[in-house]
Design a protein around this nucleic acid. Structure first.
Length: 293
DNA sequence: AACATTTGACCGTG
DNA sequence: CACGGTCAAATGTT
């Protein structure tokens, strides 16, 4: 796995490529396909920097801390809130700690949240706020988040998200991914990019807010990405080759992943959430080219 | 009036 | 029993 520094670098580079595209759009409005709104591009940029901040601030934590954080991540989809118990269930069995984000400001993530609690947490200076999706009842949306200031001067707020949105009130971010996918498809002989779960498995089960995960399901997805590369290429050696190549890559901005034409159909199996939620995917497949140079 | 936030209490988990 | 997640009444805001 790449070092935190390298991951932060990749997040910044990714943000940089988004910024370049936004700049190009501002300079030459007609030159861009407008498949992604400027607002979404800006949001992506902010999230890339958030990820970099988070990675770099985590780097200062102890290794033990990191291991325990990672081990608590869970990739399973949110369970419907069918329990009639008024009290919480065990975190280890019923909730999903999907990802977290550190930001200088608790940023707008495109979803509407309702605060339902606030607690002071032991050994921490600041209180933690608890939010659930405003559409929790209307759409039985089980998404929740915790927000807590973890640093002062400069202030850093850690937002931890649990579960997925099923309310689908914001699909803008999906457009970003679609655009990424389309442009990736345009590069060379690219056919598919496949990350994470089968699309069919995901259908109807989520619509998450977009953010670059810092520690999203790390160990699980490491296996998934490797396995799925094997699935694409059918070649274990190729998999190792690409991984090694990317690990020793100079992270040039112009690098782009062009999967070898494969036996897999052209069916779109791109899982945008997992692509952008997991920096390790970049580790393995290289940076994605937005067509801006 | 309707909706959102605050806050003390409750209670499951380890 | 301490901790932290959630509930729900009280309070604030629009």
């Amino acid at each position: 796995m790449n070092s935190p520094h390298e991951k932060a670098m990749q997040a910044i580079l990714y943000g940089h490529s988004c910024a370049k595209r936004l700049k190009l759009r501002l300079e030459e409005p007609m030159a861009d396909d407008r498949s992604v709104s400027s607002c979404d591009l800006a949001t992506s940029i902010v999230h890339c920097f958030s990820s970099a901040i988070s990675i770099l601030s985590d780097k200062q934590k102890s290794e033990d801390d990191q291991v325990s954080d990672l081990s608590s991540m869970d990739s399973s989809p949110p369970l419907p809130q069918i329990s009639h118990s008024k009290r919480r269930k065990s975190n280890s069995t019923n909730s999903t700690k999907n990802w977290r984000d550190d930001s200088p400001d608790p940023y707008y993530d495109g979803f509407q949240w309702r605060k339902y609690g606030q607690k002071s947490i032991k050994n921490t200076k600041y209180e933690r706020s608890y939010y659930r999706c405003s559409y929790n009842i209307d759409h039985a949306c089980g998404a929740r988040k915790h927000e807590q200031q973890i640093k002062d001067n400069p202030p850093v707020y850690r937002t931890t998200y649990f579960g997925h949105h099923t309310c689908r009130i914001n699909n803008n971010h999906d457009a970003v991914f679609a655009a990424v996918r389309d442009q990736v498809d345009d590069v060379g002989s690219s056919r598919i990019i496949r990350f994470g779960k089968e699309l069919d498995q995901e259908k109807g089960s989520h619509s998450t807010g977009f953010s670059l995960s810092v520690k999203h399901e790390e160990s699980i997805i490491k296996e998934q990405t490797t396995d799925q590369y094997r699935e694409i290429t059918g070649d274990d050696k190729d998999c190792q080759h690409v991984i090694a190549e990317n690990q020793s890559s100079d992270s040039s901005l112009s690098s782009s992943y062009t999967p070898p034409s494969s036996s897999v159909s052209e069916t779109d199996m791109f899982d945008s959430d997992l692509l952008l939620n997991n920096l390790d995917s970049w580790d393995r497949y290289g940076l994605f080219d937005f067509g801006v140079h």
